[in-house]
Design a protein around this nucleic acid. Structure first.
Lengths: 136, 136
DNA sequence: GTAATCTCTCTAGCGGCTAGAGCTTCAAGA
DNA sequence: TCTTGAAGCTCTAGCCGCTAGAGAGATTAC
């Protein structure tokens, strides 16, 4: 059994965040010491690592609730888990596409070599969307 | 002079968002009708379009305050504007790179063709970061 | 004149944390 | 055993960039 600080270090998740996950129902309410401090076992660490990893991949708190629920039932079909991953993949791809457009536009306007605001492509472009190449 | 609804339609920015921008000091406090309703001119529309466009490119409210300030002084050098655009570009590129790594990982785990949770790569990977290919 | 539509201000909520106040508990050394 | 300093507790509030809703008043078309 270890403390929340120890869990925090081992999982790489900040203490207030762990408490937040408990509030949100991702982490089960932890066992307590006599003095009311949280005590965790390896299971807690596993679960927190699962959560952290899922967050890194961009799953929402709500998604993770679902994934955790699924992970408790190894005999169930994993269609739902696949669907969730696929949705995330779509989302990530859409965001990449959008950022690519932004990158192109920012690159273009950064290329301006004017000296003063009056002739600066950055400001000019922001003022007039018509000057943009693509859409965003 | 036109109403906030009209401005909203013309600029493609929702009404509460316009009022929010006013609160944040991006839009000047608008003129008012006798009955205390906001009235805008073409200048207001220009400014709001500038704001909208800047937001689309990912500039923060704070950045935009700076950009608007700059745009009012055409005689000034535009180094600051360039720096801001360059910082945004760096940021966008970093985010693209991160999303790319996520995409790869999600693609990999989505490729799993197991039937049950017990053998599902999605869940398995989330539970054990060691199974990931890259880092994220 | 009346009805339908806008607009007003104010407050609260979203997600996913993060920070701080003011207190209690724990663990290591003297 | 006592002390001290770190670590933990709960609770509330704040971050960003909006968005939603209540309950009121203004405007506009017929």
């Amino acid at each position: 059994m270890f403390s929340i600080g120890e869990l925090s270090r081992r999982a790489g998740v900040k203490i207030p965040t762990i408490r937040y996950y408990e509030q949100m129902g991702l982490m089960a309410a932890a066992d307590r010491s006599e003095g009311n401090q949280r005590r965790y076992s390896k299971d807690g660490l596993k679960r927190l690592s699962f959560i952290r990893h899922s967050r890194e991949l961009g799953f929402s708190i709500d998604d993770i609730r679902g994934l955790l629920e699924l992970s408790q039932h190894p005999e169930k079909p994993c269609r739902d888990a696949h669907n969730m991953a696929a949705r995330r993949l779509d989302d990530v791809r859409a965001r990449i596409a959008k950022l690519r457009r932004l990158e192109r536009e920012l690159k273009r306007i950064s290329g301006c070599d004017a000296d003063t605001i009056a002739h600066c492509a950055v400001i000019e472009t922001l003022a007039d969307h018509g000057l943009c190449e693509g859409d965003h």
